[in-house]
Simulated scan of single mutants.
Amino acid sequence: MYRRRPVLIVGFSPLTRIGLARVLSRLPDVGAISAAASPAAAVRFASRTVTGMAVVDQTADPGFTLVRSLSSGYTPCPVVVLLTPSAHADEDARFAFGQGAQAVALATASASYLHQVLAGVYLGVPIQSKGEPANAEHKRGHALSQRETEILALIAEGMSSKVIAERLVVSVETVRSHAKNIIRKLEANGRAEAVSIAYRTGILDSDALPLA
């Protein structure tokens, strides 16, 4: 029998937890949403509960040791880190990925963007399908043009097609056309999955994706 996987929120103020819980409640087939006020409480929770995803506040885990514990423990789970906006956010993002984070986003990101990121991680996007060669995803990345990679990076920042069009001085339809090509080339089911694939396979990194 299928069992919905619980989600753990680590850290954050009580009001922020409520907001995150509302965003998480919109995920398909999401299980119970629990909160842990400290890394120790999070580890205790994960050790006795098969967790579908953990959303970690950087201020509660500044060294990302909890990220490492949750992502590579006895019962590992995917981890999303919400970063504190700062001049060092790009370095923090690179460190978080190195410790095992599946995705990062600024804590000030919009609810709609957070939903995209969280849905992509919770639903899961495999790095490679059975039977594919080990470098299949890298080949997909090489198939992207320079413009497509640029647009994918802006999508990853949470920009809409209209904002991207204004930034690049092109039409909205041109941006949408590029986005469709990106999704097709990466064999993704949508923009969120395309961003997730890009992070996991190195098509995008923290240097290509300014966070501050």
Rank of each mutant, 00 (worst) to 15 (best):
P6D: 07
V7Y: 02
V7H: 08
L8S: 12
V10H: 12
I18S: 10
G19N: 11
S25Y: 08
D29M: 12
A32C: 08
A35P: 06
V43L: 09
R44Y: 03
S47D: 12
T51A: 10
G52P: 12
M53C: 01
V55N: 07
T59L: 15
T59P: 02
D61N: 09
P62L: 09
T65K: 04
V67M: 05
V67G: 05
C77I: 09
L82V: 07
S86L: 04
A89E: 10
A89H: 04
E91Q: 13
D92H: 05
A93R: 13
A96N: 08
A96V: 02
G100W: 13
A101D: 00
A103P: 00
A103E: 02
V104Q: 02
A105D: 01
T108H: 13
V117F: 03
L123M: 12
I127D: 12
A136E: 14
H138L: 15
H142E: 13
S145I: 05
R147C: 03
L152V: 10
A153L: 07
G158A: 06
S161C: 05
T174S: 05
T174W: 00
S177N: 12
H178A: 03
K180P: 00
K180Y: 05
E187Y: 05
A188G: 08
G190I: 03
G190K: 04
R200A: 14
D205V: 09
A208K: 14
L209K: 02
P210T: 05
L211S: 01
A212R: 11
